[in-house]
């Protein structure tokens, strides 16, 4: 660009402006990256209670390490522009240099942003596929599964609470969520009424609970302790109060808990509907989970007949 005036900002060459910006940005970027990797990473949610949580912690750290330098560069550029190229208030109006385009810069911009986007895509896909869905809901027929033995837990959401059913341990249903440590867990999330969401925050697990549908999410537990379960999909009036706590316990403790709970709930368990991964229909008469009054003479129950259990 031509030097149009000899006044200070215009006398500075493009290269100098660029060098100044880079000189400020590069050290800042290096510090930011180091702080994110070494200082902040262990504290970034959702923690390390499970493999999926730890994976998400890593992913959030990596994305932050990409996003923050971009943020710093752009903001630094804006601040620099305002400091260096600001037109004094009240001074007569002068036009700037008529730079309409610059093929080099435009091409570089597109190449760099495209490379970042495809990089993020490859990284995200790897981090999704390799850790068996990364703790997210994978629908009824997951294609990314963990190898080895898995403990299935059915999560049954309803307005406005969660219950849990353990099909491989006698099929009892309880309001306590207890899972063993160092174990691959498969959460089979379903709902009795509206759409809910099972969010086990510290486990890095989130899956929508859809009526008459199975949504599977895998995780591998790593640390004993309590975790929070919240509904993360608006489900009506008491959505805000729909939370409870789960516990990751040592395996031996889990076995004794399962044995005693199975015995304690035996009389209830035999009245439960047959277990099914395809959903959970507690009663066929619409008493639970129907949206139309069972007595409604115009309702679908009257028109189509009662819904039947799917198993």
């Amino acid at each position: 660009m031509a030097r149009r005036q000899s006044s200070s900002p215009d006398a500075v060459s493009n290269k100098t402006h660029t060098a100044r910006l880079m000189g400020m940005w590069v050290p800042l970027m290096v510090v930011t990256e180091l702080v994110f990797w070494f200082v902040l990473q262990p504290h970034i949610p959702p923690g390390r209670q499970s493999d999926s949580a730890q994976g998400q912690q890593f992913d959030i750290t990596v994305l932050s390490m990409i996003a923050t330098p971009v943020f710093e560069l752009v903001i630094m550029y804006f601040i620099y522009s305002l400091l260096v190229w600001r037109h004094p208030k009240g001074a007569p109006l002068v036009d700037g240099p008529p730079i309409r385009s610059n093929m080099k810069i435009q091409t570089a911009w597109m190449v760099i942003t495209s490379a970042m986007v495809f990089g993020a895509f490859v990284f995200g896909t790897y981090e999704l596929v390799v850790p068996a869905g990364a703790g997210g809901g994978e629908g009824p027929n997951p294609i990314w599964k963990p190898s080895g033995k898995v403990l299935p837990v059915q999560v049954i959401a309803q307005q406005w609470r969660f219950t849990y059913r353990y099909p491989t341990l006698g099929g009892f249903e309880t309001s306590q969520l207890v899972i063993p440590n160092h174990t691959e867990i498969a959460f089979h999330v379903t709902s009795l009424d509206v759409v809910h969401n099972f969010w086990a925050y510290q486990l890095g697990v989130k899956a929508d609970a859809n009526p008459q549908s199975d949504n599977v999410a895998y995780t591998h537990t790593n640390q004993v302790g309590r975790f929070t379960v919240r509904c993360a999909e608006l489900c009506g009036i008491w959505h805000g109060a729909m939370y409870n706590y789960g516990h990751v316990v040592p395996r031996a403790q889990f076995s004794s808990w399962a044995t005693s709970t199975k015995a304690r709930l035996a009389s209830n368990t035999k009245n439960l509907p047959p277990f099914s991964y395809a959903g959970y229909v507690p009663s066929a008469n619409g008493a639970a989970g129907s949206f139309y009054s069972p007595q409604d003479k115009f309702g679908p129950l009257e028109t189509y007949g009662a819904a039947t259990p799917t198993s």
């Binding site: 949610p45 998400q56 994305l63 995200g124 990364a134 703790g135 999909e233």
Partner: peptide, 30 residues
């Protein structure tokens, strides 16, 4: 206009977190 550039930068960059499926597990619906 300058405020738009500042705000939208934060909005846009956090959108990248949301678009990443593994990170979305934590941030979806929050």
């Amino acid at each position: 206009v300058l405020a738009l550039y500042f705000n939208f930068l934060i909005g846009g960059l956090t959108g990248v977190f949301l678009s990443d499926v593994p990170v979305n597990v934590t941030v979806h619906g929050s």
